[in-house]
């Protein structure tokens, strides 16, 4: 009847709220995004970020979804996603198990760059680049983790940021195995 100490620690660990990265391989089918997201809706899990794109295998899409939840919940959710008919497989990773990036765009008035070199230094020192220069505004692009793109946003704010947008996270696992080989292995398994 009594839980052991180890069991208690495991339980506590399972119930701690943290970020998980789901990487889902699917058929490219309309409506499937809805089928995936209602699995979160039903459990009142908010999606932090989401990205869908075709993989190197034609007709196979990859969803990268970041959610904040518990280990216990994410394990249940990922099994539900795998159950969807048009899903090949779903992986769940913690952030240290993957390489990931996000891309951010910043729109600032062109005149900022005409008043001295400070703004230009900011771009150069933060590994950002200038995407386009229009008469009225300049768009700066930066890839990085959320804290990095947000950091540049804070630094640009005093100069006047007209608009800021950040993409969903995209991620790759640390495995050498490509998508095609994985799908082949999955096929052979069944």
């Amino acid at each position: 009847m009594n839980k052991t100490k180890i069991e208690e620690e495991v339980t506590a660990d399972n119930q701690e709220l943290r970020s998980f990265n789901l990487s889902i391989l699917t058929e490219n089918k309309s409506g499937l995004l809805n089928a995936v997201t209602i699995i979160f809706t039903r459990r009142k899990i908010n999606i932090e970020s989401i990205n869908v794109s075709e993989t190197e295998v034609e007709g196979v899409s990859r969803y990268t979804i970041v959610i904040k939840t518990t280990r216990e919940q994410v394990d249940k959710v990922v099994k539900r996603i795998r159950k969807l008919i048009d899903v090949f497989w779903a992986f769940v990773y913690e952030s240290d198990e993957i390489f990931y990036q996000e891309i951010a765009l910043y729109k600032v008035p062109t005149k900022v760059f005409l008043n001295g070199e400070k703004a230009e230094h900011l771009v150069r020192n933060n590994g950002a680049r200038i995407l386009v220069i229009e008469e009225d505004f300049i768009i700066i692009e930066k890839t990085g983790h959320q804290n990095e793109t947000k950091d540049l946003l804070e630094k640009l704010k005093p100069y006047g940021v007209l608009e800021f947008v950040r993409s969903g996270r995209i991620a790759m696992s640390k495995s050498m195995r490509g998508t095609e080989l994985f799908l082949q292995e999955l096929h052979n398994h069944y």
Partner: peptide
């Protein structure tokens, strides 16, 4: 057969 669906696991 559906390539994404494996109804009876081994």
């Amino acid at each position: 057969k559906i390539r994404t669906y494996h109804p009876v696991p081994k």
